[in-house]
Design a protein around this nucleic acid. Sequence first.
DNA 1: TTGCTTGCAAAGGATTTGCAACATG
DNA 2: CATGTTGCAAATCCTTTGCAAGCAA
Lengths: 147, 147
Amino acid sequence: MKANAKGIFEEFLGGKGLRMTKQRALILASFLKKEGHMTSEELHETVKAKDPSVGRATVYRMLKLMKEAGLAHEVDFGEGIARYEHKYGHAHHDHLICLRCGRTREVVDEGIEGLQEKLASRYGFSLTSHKMDLYGLCPECRKKQKK
Amino acid sequence: MKANAKGIFEEFLGGKGLRMTKQRALILASFLKKEGHMTSEELHETVKAKDPSVGRATVYRMLKLMKEAGLAHEVDFGEGIARYEHKYGHAHHDHLICLRCGRTREVVDEGIEGLQEKLASRYGFSLTSHKMDLYGLCPECRKKQKK
DNA sequence: TTGCTTGCAAAGGATTTGCAACATG
DNA sequence: CATGTTGCAAATCCTTTGCAAGCAA
């Protein structure tokens, strides 16, 4: 699966006359290995652990490329920084976000997905994508809250 | 309605030992008058048309106050800039956004709202708020697309 | 008066870009 | 070898902050 994602990315690069480099391979591998919603800085740290010479600009440039290649997805939890999650092998999903501890859960509800389509077509829109983030308290934080 | 919103804001200010000033009154009125999702800069322009001496920092500071007072709501359509819509007299709603022309529509679907609660409680979360933005093509842009 | 407010400019934080040196196909 | 690529630092963009002067209560 990891090798395959790399294959997809190389094909993407080839199609645009771009090249695979050791920095790109390292960043891609690091990105795929880590789960969750990481910031550019977190990814840069992970990459630097393997090769301290990689600069942050390269990480930003790769993030943009991976987004174009369809391997990364940008999310925004209202913190004023971009976060990325990998799309490869991850189906579409929405987020449940704890306002206290920041933990997130990926969720999907077919019923909601269906109603979104209906809602859009009611207004004559054709839907391309959507984002839905639900904010609240996770079970653990609700417990602490009561004490 | 406008006068009333001003009343709400003055009460909010009073409760915090803050003062009403002519800049604040002007920014509030300009904010309420304009519909849609405006950026800080757009609001600043509107305000400057009435009083060119108002600085952008004051607009940013007011936006934060209006948010605290519950009169403004920050939204983010992924452009890297904050947009604000007024909450006063506007019930909760989600957005339908045209990817081509940028037009937005405010929508609500009770069915979706209900399923969101169910989805959250299925994971033990208590819900505080949510945001849902649907991206696609509006009826006008779909027509143009076909030609 | 007291101390909240303002405008300005400087500071900040995240992300982008120019450039000379370097590596890939 | 011709071009893409890199790291660095400088530059941007949006937003926040420090400060001296100004104004509301």
